[in-house]
Design a protein around this nucleic acid. Structure first.
Length: 635
RNA sequence: GCUGCUGUAGCUCAGUGGUAGAGCACUUCCUUGGUAAGGAAGAGGUCAUGGGUUCGAGCCCCAUCAGCAGCUCCA
């Protein structure tokens, strides 16, 4: 039979719009942007090669398994009401309204029931019916959510049910033919989810699961989920003594321990280095300002809910800053500006505070106080394209240094209320496009995705686990220059309005460094590693030699841990290994006599003896080149 | 903020109404060992916090705080 399905590719494509039409925001990065494996993750290196002999696309299988699950839930929990149950990037979910809360135990029961049903190999039947009939059937079954779903289907569309056994669901398909074929699935987790993704609507219970045609693929996926768990920055944060959070201090405030503070400082040094190279000047602005500043900027009006409550000083309300731009603008405004000094590029690692709702704070990824790697470029319209190109180049340099791949998106003018006239939008968008062309940066169009105050280029980076997250953004702003009435004296002697470019490369240090922990799995490259070298004497009498090497390494600004406390070397090797120190130098009689070191690289049990001077050069090179690997790069 | 779950030693976790436990880490002593945990002893907890029920609460109930899986929202 025509296994490519009577439904064809057009029906297949309909799967995704189905959800969007119904008012779902398609989840992009989910909670904490990168913490959730289900939606936002792709599996690049874990994914098996594409299958050719699959009877149906994976999406179709998953959608059908979601139905299988729903039918099992229906048998185990009579009276359950159904919500939506689509396939998603790495699996599927189904939403249920149930009196009692589900538990993990129920998940196993449901799985068992699913296998029971699938064991009978029921066929999946499609039935086309009228809107009236569907409404009657669903109402009779008390499926109030499904009745609502019915009303969301556009007038000109066919109404269909898909079912197996005695169970059927309002659904546009497509589905596999029957449950007789071999497939593998697992139910993964439970969560609450608002009906139709709307927080004013009732909350349903969502079950997530995944399904594959091949056992090995399911296993690989589960393995990958394990790897994600192992690399969780919160777990590694404890294991490697990187950071902590404290109930005493409140939710969403990160305490950087020496190890992670070291990583951060290296990131910051690199960041400043690259900015200085590109003609940025540093600025520092206060954390607290009079409220009137944020009234002028519009933050109070548009962003007030995210801001901390005012504090009163000398009978004046003051606010903690949620963004750095107003401060930079005050500096710009401090005196008259001439076209001769533009572009001005001002950078600040500016710490801001934003009120985040209690349920969303998450490790270092979503916090209430964080440091943005912020900069603002004040320039003329003519300079815009060059300035943007400069930022694109900077993003490329930074992301490649950390080993991230990325994709850039051009976000254009949104449909509804925006400021600035067509002409300037057109010119700015064109400038972004030209700039990208200048640096050979392909742009994916994000139609209408711009901010209300201007178009932008957003970047998504892909980490070592194939997960995507957004950090860098380059935004043209016509709004703030207007609000603050910024100007510069142009060649013609008249006052002109500068364009402001807001840009962040890393986003926030908290989120970025948290991401680095997971990207590297705690195995930081040499330049970032909290301790770069561990010195281990074989016997106490070799301590002096180790101390001497420690001194030499420190003079070269190599971060070194001389482990000459009493104890056995095996234990120290294990400790250094556990701490993910890139290099262990082990010194005993032979090494002392020859002024060599036995070098053990992270991730290998082999060792290589070399003159200490040679090692010093090696580690210096790896650090200074910000190499990602522990091997010297071949010239 | 919402739904569900969790909070016991620095870490990982046992302990379901009747005298607070284990492993690792830590301290001390012994051990001088050539590449992933040497041995022994010791110290360490108002069981998140505040109320309540009970003769009696780590355990049951309520509230608060914090965390976890998501939803919604975001750098």
């Amino acid at each position: 039979m025509a296994r490519s399905a009577g439904d064809g590719p057009a029906r297949l494509l309909a799967l995704v719009p189905f959800r969007e039409r119904h008012g779902f925001a398609r989840p992009r990065w989910g909670r904490g942007d990168r913490s959730s494996p289900r939606e936002q993750v792709s599996m690049s290196e874990f994914q098996a090669s594409p299958q050719v002999e699959e009877p149906f696309p994976l999406e179709t299988l998953r959608h059908s398994v979601a139905h299988l699950m729903a039918s099992a839930v229906g048998r185990l929990f009579p009276g359950v009401q159904y919500g939506f149950g689509p396939c998603i990037e790495h699996g599927f979910y189904y939403d249920f309204a149930l009196e009692e809360p589900l538990t993990d135990k129920d998940l196993r029961r449901i799985e068992k029931e699913m296998r029971k049903i699938a064991g009978r190999k029921p066929e999946i039947a499609r039935e086309v019916t009228t809107r009236e009939d569907a409404r009657e059937r669903l109402s009779a079954q008390g499926q109030t959510f499904k009745v609502e779903a019915l009303d969301l289907i556009p007038e000109d569309e066919e109404i269909s049910f898909y079912g197996h056994g005695e169970w059927a669901d309002l659904c546009e398909g497509p589905h596999i033919d029957d449950f007789g074929q071999t497939f593998h699935f697992k139910l993964l987790s439970l969560a609450g989810a608002y009906w139709r993704g709307d927080e004013t609507r009732p909350m349903m219970q969502r079950i997530y699961g995944t399904a594959f045609w091949k056992r090995a693929e399911l296993d690989a996926h589960l393995e990958w989920l394990e790897e994600v768990k192992k690399r969780d920055h919160r777990k590694l944060g404890t294991e490697l003594d990187l950071f902590s959070l404290h109930a005493e201090a409140g939710a969403g405030f990160v305490f950087w321990h020496p190890n992670l503070a070291t990583v951060r400082r290296e990131v910051e040094n690199f960041w400043w280095e690259e900015h200085t190279r590109r003609g940025y000047d540093p600025v520092y602005t206060p954390h607290i300002s009079r409220e009137t500043l944020f009234a002028v900027s519009g933050h109070l009006e548009n962003y007030g809910e995210m801001m901390y409550a005012p504090m009163e000083l000398d009978a004046q309300p003051y606010r903690v800053k949620p963004m750095n731009c107003p401060g930079h603008i005050l500096i710009y405004q401090n005196r008259g500006r001439s076209y001769r000094e533009l572009p001005l590029r001002w950078a600040e690692l500016g710490t801001v505070y934003r009120y985040e709702r209690s349920g969303v704070v998450h490790g270092m990824m979503r916090v209430r106080g964080f440091t943005q790697d912020d900069a603002h470029i004040f320039c003329t319209p003519e300079q815009l394209a060059d300035e943007i190109a400069g930022v694109c180049d900077l993003v490329d340099k930074v992301m490649r240094t950390f080993g991230f791949e990325y994709t850039a998106y051009l976000a254009t003018r949104p449909e509804d209320k925006t400021i600035g006239d067509d002409d300037i939008w057109e010119r700015a968008t064109e400038a972004l496009r030209q700039a990208a062309q200048k640096v050979d940066l392909p742009l994916v169009l994000d139609e209408g995705g711009g901010a209300f105050y201007g178009p932008k280029i957003d970047y998504k980076i892909r980490d070592a686990l194939g997960r995507e997250w957004q950090n860098s953004t380059i935004q043209c702003d016509f709004n703030l220059p207007e609000r603050f009435d910024l100007s510069y004296a142009a060649k013609d002697g008249h006052a002109h309005r500068p364009i402001m470019v807001h840009r962040a490369i890393l986003g926030s240090l908290e989120r970025f460094v948290g991401g680095l922990i997971e990207h590297y799995g705690g195995k930081f490259p040499v330049w970032l590693a909290p301790k770069q070298v561990a010195l281990i004497p074989i016997r106490e009498e070799h301590s002096d030699y180790c101390r001497e090497l420690e001194g030499e390494l420190r003079r070269e600004l190599i971060r070194v841990d001389c482990m000459d406390e009493p104890g056995h070397m095996n234990k120290k090797i294990k400790q250094a290994q556990h701490a993910q120190v890139p290099f262990m130098l082990i010194a005993g009689e032979r090494e002392v006599a020859e002024r060599t070191v036995a070098v053990r690289r992270r991730g290998t049990r082999d060792q290589e003896t070399m003159p200490f001077a040679q090692f010093l050069e090696l580690v210096r090179d790896l650090r200074d080149s910000r190499a990602l690997e522990l091997e010297p790069t071949p010239a």
